[in-house]
């Protein structure tokens, strides 16, 4: 359900990112076939890659753990997310892995970073867009 919420949030700002000259790239931890199903189901038209071994997740310092997914704060956030109409679907990938978002480039320039502390924690899409705007003339 949080994965669906995260997908909906990024799809919502995709057009504006493109206008700012920022390409949207998503990395998931399922198989290429599951990624394709995800893109079809949610209408994701950005570039999509997979990392089943979670190596890139570890390299970026992203969180992982049972309590990161099902801890009290995540459960309460889950209740709110259900209130927004999102439901838990059939999961494909590592249930305990958390996500994050980074705006990078050109080259090794990090313009924005957010590491999700737990399930339900996500970057503010407005903050992502603002970071892209500020750095749009570089």
């Amino acid at each position: 359900m949080f994965a669906r919420q995260q997908a909906a949030a990024i799809i919502k700002i995709q057009a504006e990112l493109n206008t700012l000259g920022v390409s949207l790239v998503a990395i998931g931890n399922g198989s290429p076939e599951q990624a394709r199903d995800f893109a079809d189901k949610f209408g994701f038209t950005g570039e999509l890659f997979v990392d089943e071994g979670l190596q890139t997740y570890k390299a970026f310092g992203l969180k992982r753990g049972f309590w990161k997914t099902l801890g009290p704060a995540s459960v309460v956030r889950g209740f709110k997310t259900m209130g927004q109409g999102f439901r838990q679907g059939r999961s494909a990938g590592d249930l305990w892995q958390q996500g994050g978002i980074f705006v990078i480039g050109p080259g090794n320039r990090i313009l924005f970073s957010h590491i999700n502390e737990r399930a339900g924690d996500q970057a503010d899409p407005k903050a992502v867009l603002e970071a892209c705007r500020i750095n749009s003339n570089i």
């Binding site: 000259g21 998931g28 992203l62 999961s91 996500g99 990078i104 080259g107 090794n108 999700n116 399930a119």
Partner: peptide, 15 residues
């Protein structure tokens, strides 16, 4: 990201 800016999103899982 070598030659362009990207917003790279790490998804929790596909689901």
């Amino acid at each position: 990201w070598a030659k362009r800016r990207v917003a790279i999103v790490f998804l929790r899982h596909f689901g």
